[in-house]
Amino acid sequence: MIELQQGGNAAVDGTDASIRFEWSVPQGRDVEADASAYLLTATGRVRGDADMVFYNQPAGADGAVSFIADGSGRGRFRIDLALIPQSIERIVFCVTVHEAQAKGQTLALLDGATINVDAGGSSIRYRPTLAAASEAAMTFGELYRRNGQWKFRAVGQGFNGGLAPLASSFGIDVAEGAAPAAAPPPPPPPPVRLSKVTLDKPGQTVSLEKKGAAFGEIGVNLNWSRGRKGYFGGGTAIDLDLGCLYELQDGGIGVVQALGNAFGSFEEDPYIALSGDDRTGDVSQGETMRINGRRWQDIRRVIVFANIYDGVPNWQQTDGVVSVTMPDQPPIEVRMTEGRNDRRVCGVVMIENDAGRLKATRIVEYFRDQQKLDERFEWGLRWVAGRKD
């Protein structure tokens, strides 16, 4: 592990690099932060809006740079250095506090903020000093070319303002609201949309139209505050699991969850697959479920739930969030901001096929177990006791 100080640099070996962030927020503070990357030419600006890579535009440079969301805003960037166009001299990686001005927040609220670079079997780490930061945005570090060699530099340069002014400073045409109506041909590219869709009211819904023949891969991620994943009440480690009830258009019903090793299948019925099981809370990406949007016509409805399999139920302290993401669509977030600490299952969001559209409805109701969730929504499964191996 190479530890860098501000201004320090180190060579990046190999052609594949992973850039990941770590941070936590103080208990009880409503703080959201997001990571973003910008591909810059020798002018210090992007070639166009497609050179910004973040949660709402997760790929750039024809796939050479991609953002893998984890629902917390941290996520990670995957870089194929061999495919970066020669006109790109630097890739800068930034962190911004969401709605910082409205909430009176700064980067000082991010505890243990770190940028990590993993490439060629080696690791580089930089931890900027944020304790007295007055800014809401910062460039943590950058990848840059020097004599044909890629290097990483620890930057730690703050920026007044949030994500929109930061993106604008690199040459991004920002639109906070909906994109403007298309001009007569040839139309200009639409501005980058920085918005998220947050379902924070009981029964609130949002409908998304397909932008092509299919939605592509629909990702459902469960994450909870990394700073509080460790222990809740009495020193008992918590095991928070992601799962779903599903109903297909042909009437088939079932459950996808780690319990009973019912991990599902992406390419075959039910076209929903759970990617692993984080039993300790040590996986920064949380738990992710993949829905095959190419088979959206075969799916009728899905109820996403979170289950405290082990540990003392304490929903308020988990600060759990479920995110639904897909290409060319704004991410949908549902936070578990309340809870019944005598109940181990939270029905979080229902995803329905509404005449081809994707309709997401906030639930956030708490149940003793999955069977009670089933009964509430009249799913009709037969339940038996199960466990994880």
Rank of each mutant, 00 (worst) to 15 (best):
A213I: 06
P270Y: 02
K210G: 08
G48N: 15
V206N: 05
F159V: 12
A11N: 06
G264P: 07
S168L: 10
A258V: 03
T288A: 08
G203N: 09
D310G: 00
A136Q: 12
P185R: 06
S122H: 14
D342E: 14
G171P: 06
Y144E: 04
Q6R: 15
G219K: 13
G75Y: 05
Y144F: 11
I2P: 00
W150K: 08
R290A: 11
G347H: 09
T106D: 07
E365I: 03
Y144I: 06
G63W: 15
E247G: 13
E217M: 15
D111Q: 11
A262H: 12
E176N: 14
G162Y: 09
E89T: 13
D282N: 11
K103L: 10
S207R: 15
L259C: 02
P165E: 03
A179Q: 14
I351W: 08
Y271V: 00
A119Y: 14
R76M: 09
E89V: 09
V25W: 11
A355I: 12
P330E: 08
W23Q: 10
Q257S: 11
A258N: 02
T361F: 04
E217Y: 13
V321M: 10
T337L: 04
I172C: 05
F305M: 12
C94V: 13
M52H: 02
F140C: 06
V155F: 04
E99N: 13
V322A: 08
D173H: 07
R295H: 11
R290K: 15
E267P: 02
L81N: 04
V53N: 04
L83W: 12
Q370W: 01
A113C: 15
E142N: 01
Y55K: 00
A181M: 15
P190T: 08
S207Q: 13
G104K: 09
Q371C: 04
I218G: 02
A137N: 07
Y231H: 05
A182Y: 11
T337S: 11
D269N: 11
R362C: 06
P26T: 03
G293T: 00
I299P: 09
Y271R: 10
V53Q: 05
M138H: 10
Y309L: 08
E176H: 10
N56H: 03
A59E: 14
G286R: 06
M1F: 13
K103C: 03
N116C: 04
C94M: 04
R294V: 10
E3D: 12
R47A: 08
G234V: 03
G347W: 10
L40R: 11
F266A: 03
A213L: 08
D241Y: 07
Q317V: 12
K196E: 01
D369L: 06
P331E: 00
L259R: 10
Y271T: 04
G260W: 05
G158Q: 12
V174I: 15
Q257C: 03
G162L: 01
V322S: 07
V12K: 09
I124Q: 05
F377C: 03
Q317K: 07
A258E: 07
T139C: 09
M350D: 01
A137M: 00
A175G: 14
V95D: 13
N160Q: 14
Q329D: 01
A132R: 12
L222Y: 08
G73Y: 15
A181T: 14
A213P: 02
G63P: 05
S36H: 08
P184Y: 10
R368I: 08
A37Q: 07
